[in-house]
Nucleic acid binder design. Sequence first.
DNA 1: CTAACGTACAACCAAATGGTTGTAGATCAG
DNA 2: CTGATCTACAACCATTTGGTTGTACGTTAG
Lengths: 116, 116
Amino acid sequence: MVVDQQLSDAEVDRLFHALADATRRDIVRRTLVTEASVSDLARCYAMTFAAVQKHVAVLEEAGLVTKQPRGRERIVRGNPDRIRAAQALLDDYEQLWRVRVERLDALLADDDHPSP
Amino acid sequence: MVVDQQLSDAEVDRLFHALADATRRDIVRRTLVTEASVSDLARCYAMTFAAVQKHVAVLEEAGLVTKQPRGRERIVRGNPDRIRAAQALLDDYEQLWRVRVERLDALLADDDHPSP
DNA sequence: CTAACGTACAACCAAATGGTTGTAGATCAG
DNA sequence: CTGATCTACAACCATTTGGTTGTACGTTAG
């Protein structure tokens, strides 16, 4: 089982911010399936190489992607662990919501036996 | 079972962007457990009422929170469905990653029977 | 060696973000 | 009615963001 990484607020900020852009999400999608160099990726989008380079940097700082040198290229790979970390965070929110549901259930149970 | 909402790129942008701020995440946490007025929330943070109001607006546009008038107050409640929508999106990414794993497995299987 | 390719990085710009203050409209309490 | 409270919204400001262009440097191909 993957250990539930303890991410700081700033890291969580970076993680969700990195996911809040369609181009970056597409880069994550691609590199989860197939590794690609930065210029491979740049050819996929209607923007300059430098712009794509910046998106990859944002993803790398968020931990969603790793960049490994290979000759003159930098090979980009998606990091499934960070995806799972994000899922774990969202799971926590859902668990919190259950508290509300359980409290409402308790209230309804009390209504079955109202005090006079 | 909750239907898998079909979110546009712009909606997903808004969803993750709304989550990319510690104050907003805290508002979501609180309002998932207990409903609260905007000024209830404002008292929790070291910033002006107007700033908190803006954060709530961002969360509302992202669908992570609903705002319901009650007298002069606006009651804020967390929306677990949007949390689940975000989880569903991340699940998709994890599924993509499995494609890579399966392809690697296939490659290894080929290596068991190398051609001469 | 030379030319082409892949990357890194700085400088610049318009637009969006996250905060502030200030004003004004509803609603509630006394 | 009057005053306090809760909200809405505009205007403003500093910083960040997402894009551009341009320059420089290492690596590969011919």
